[in-house]
Nucleic acid binder design. Structure first.
Lengths: 221, 221, 221, 221
DNA sequence: CATGAATGAGGTTTCATTCAT
DNA sequence: GATGAATGAAACCTCATTCAT
């Protein structure tokens, strides 16, 4: 985004510098993501991020204006990650039933493989989304998935397999919630119920259950 | 140890002292609950809790050992609140279908009316339940609800209305997740999707949706 | 000191009370001595003293005006202990050589058995004796030992066994110093020299050495 | 690492930075030494150290990790000071009698001119040498003096002037104790005996006395 | 592009002491 | 004589941020 090709040809040394800059920026961003994810916005330490990134603390302020700006950048990066992954699903090319199953499986897997998504969102919600609200890139974060899911539901309804009147946003939130809550609250749930919810068998059972719940809802009975 | 009214007349001074201590403790606890809920464990300020409670900061350390101990006490209080409310539901006296609907409605309502439950749990999960794990009262927090829900599901299955093979803990987590995620992530969801999820109409629609999802799953098709 | 015999006969209940009072006072004093000895004046905690004494913290302020007053009382008690023990030596009845040996042995043993004496004096010297200087009982602390030691030295000189011109105060300070430093600085000495100075054999060697040093000095060569 | 004057001209900025950091560290160390010496470990205040050093309080934590680490650094510095001074004595080049007299005089003078050594050691012993025990530099603190003193004693014994069987560590501790106790306990001794022990005449008398005691012991009679 | 040094504001916790009975 | 509840001042330490090069 920073170095266009034209500039590169104009001044190779500048390119190098900018490439390095991009890499440094990315290094900071990934270190910050890990730290914010581990400790939350308040618990995260600029010092620790610098250590994790292996760079001088002052550099963080060079690339990002403040801790809050850095947090926002991390959030945007995280949203971009999931948006890209969702786009790669191509639900529009699948049969409705397969599409819903695929979305459920993808959501579950993505949350499981990206626990930082969960903690970062929790942090941002604790702060009532005040970072996202100031984000210039907020609209790019809105994935076209809801639209796509709406199309899938409509196709299913027309084919007679899906029930009608399903709000795609409600369904999307439900699919997310069924996966998110289990993973996000794994520690308190495990402590209170004395059951390890994260062993492989428990995880696959959960995915089965979620799929059953969602399909039980969308399929016409 | 708590003075009954009769004893109170015998020794009013002692009663007053006891009452004051209990009341002070409770005042601190409620102020702490509000503050921890607003700002999370790290964001919460002991000074602010003292201000909210209208007491001297030092007193917090007189009743509770440290910020972490206070947080644990708040967590335990919060769990006790929900456990008491769940017990008052008396699902065991209802018809299976009514019981599941009642549980869904109760969960939704409780989370909605007690947003502190959500933020406190998020905080505790960010810290991987390290407070709860040290709690001596942890086992008392495990509500008998799972057992009761299991009975309800079995009754429904025998009556031929419910599907079989439903794990009550999975179902409980699903009901919770369907409600929790919507409320917990309301700020980021609203920001990203540009829809106000908290206006009355949206809320009642959500409850309808959740109920449909859950009933679509448990009812035999 | 508080309850005179007359008062006792006049009001037995008062006697009981005062006897209890004396006991409580003494309990506090001993607990304070232990705590001040362990942690020094600044490190000692009123709360801990109350705990050690098994009494309410407020009582300490009832019997002693403040932490500093309590510390002074402890100091005076400690000095009284050693003064009483010194008086029981009866150096004046011994042959000069025996008397000096006895004083050395006693000093060594007393410091060894009463480590609190050392730490309390160190604390008081850190504070430039500001408590002792305000003590009303300061003059009672001045043991007649210097006078007695002077007599011993004079007797020895006249008998031709001791050298002349020995200042009894200088000698007293030397005897004390030879014992005190070894015990007081045992921890740093052990750490730096890597030798355990407190095992029985080392202790008896030290006493031998001190005795040799002192006798080598006072005996006419 | 310290910039020589030549290097300074090559890169003045780097030199300055380095010099400043070293100087700041040293300034803090000296201020801390004064404060810890005055008030002991517990009585010393980080704020006061910052004031004495004329620097920001936060900086103390930048250079030293905590109050305890700072105290350890001060201790190590103090030990280094005395070790360097002892090494400069060159006892190995003197006649045995002169060497012992020189050591006595040096010890007396050093303790007198460096009262911080005394109070710091007292503090550390109150804490049972817990700082020194964690010191990585502890072994460097062990001066080669004991070895040297042992050589001196052996030379004296061979020459027939010194008695045999003298443990150099015992003698070292005795010399130290004779000087240390007088100075360390000057305040309580003065208060109790009503004699000013610190006026010049008293001080020189003490040195005479100590020398007599030590020589009376080591010299063959 | 990068860094070591420095800072002010504020955080949790501690402590001797007093209040009210 | 005795106690539980309460307090103000101050302690150590942390943190995001800036300075100066």
């Amino acid at each position: 985004m920073l170095a266009t090709t034209e500039q590169a040809s104009a001044d190779p040394s500048a390119t190098l510098r900018t490439r390095d800059a991009d890499r440094t920026r990315q290094t900071i961003l990934r270190a910050a993501m890990a730290e914010f994810s581990d400790k939350g916005l308040h618990g995260a330490r600029i010092d620790t991020i610098a250590e994790r990134a292996g760079i001088n603390k002052r550099l963080i302020y060079y690339y990002f204006e403040s801790k809050d700006e850095l947090f926002l950048a991390v959030l945007e990066e995280t949203y971009a990650d999931i948006r890209d992954a969702e786009a790669a699903l191509h639900l529009d090319t699948m049969a409705p039933t397969d599409a819903v199953r695929a979305l459920v499986a993808f959501t579950w897997q993505h949350y499981h493989e990206h626990p930082e998504f969960i903690t970062l969102l929790n942090s941002e919600n604790l702060h009532r989304a005040r970072h996202l609200q100031r984000s210039g890139r907020i609209h790019q974060l809105n994935s076209p998935l809801i639209q796509t899911l709406g199309d899938v539901l409509e196709r299913g309804r027309r084919a007679g397999t899906f029930r009608g009147g399903v709000d795609p946003l409600q369904l999307y939130i439900s699919i997310a919630g069924l996966a998110y809550f289990y993973l996000s609250n794994q520690y308190t749930l495990s402590a209170v119920f004395g059951r390890n919810l994260m062993q492989p068998k428990a995880l696959s059972e959960r995915l089965s259950h979620i799929t059953d719940v969602v399909m039980g809802y969308v399929l016409r009975s």
